[in-house]
Nucleic acid binder design. Structure first.
Lengths: 94, 94
DNA sequence: TTAATAGTTAGTCATTTGCCTAATTAGGTA
DNA sequence: TACCTAATTAGGCAAATGACTAACTATTAA
């Protein structure tokens, strides 16, 4: 969870995840969407990968990135649980 | 949302929020729970306050901190929405 | 094997973070 | 007033972050 929250703390990384939510993309496609250099994007991708929020698949010279939605869901779920938020389970207070 | 996610990225700040979730506390009570100095805790409280995740009420010399759960809920809700997560609304895909 | 392309890693630098100690502010009380 | 306690702000420092340019690795194609 710590890794995931750190990863989510940067807006560009959230935007990368959001664009991968639609479809997988390779590094160049991702980099084109942002006004920074490729190495910078590569760094952000590494952080997302360390948090296990994305996976990569090589095909020739290109690396395609996929979002790992379940990891995101688990982290957010854990956070909600930590604060007892989102329990639609109609108020089953003790 | 940016401020909230930055605030949530530090474990001590999440723990502070979790303890305020149970009941309001003053700065000393909070500081006692952690193995750091008061100024350090005060710094974390400032960051939580900047994110609007807590509010403070003075009573004499003591400041009592309250969690602002709605802010947390909104931020997490926004995040879920950003990734289309947690829509229990039985799959109403377009 | 030489070259071209996709992408990463290495190295540098400025800024931010997180912690500490010391000093200061705010309020209550003798 | 003077003093005590609660808590903050100020200042300093090491480590982490986020960006860049330059150099390197990996794969395909001529």
């Amino acid at each position: 969870m710590q890794e995931v929250l750190k990863a989510l703390a940067h807006p560009m990384r959230r935007d990368i995840l959001a664009m991968l939510r639609t479809a997988p993309r390779n590094a160049s496609e991702i980099a084109d969407k942002f006004d920074v250099t490729k190495p910078t994007v590569s760094g952000h991708l590494n952080i997302l990968k360390d948090a296990d929020l994305i996976s990569q698949v090589r095909s020739g010279t290109t690396l395609t990135y996929h979002i790992r939605l379940s990891v995101l869901e688990e982290a957010l779920g854990g956070l909600m649980g930590m604060f007892d938020i989102g329990n639609d389970k109609d108020l089953k207070e003790k």
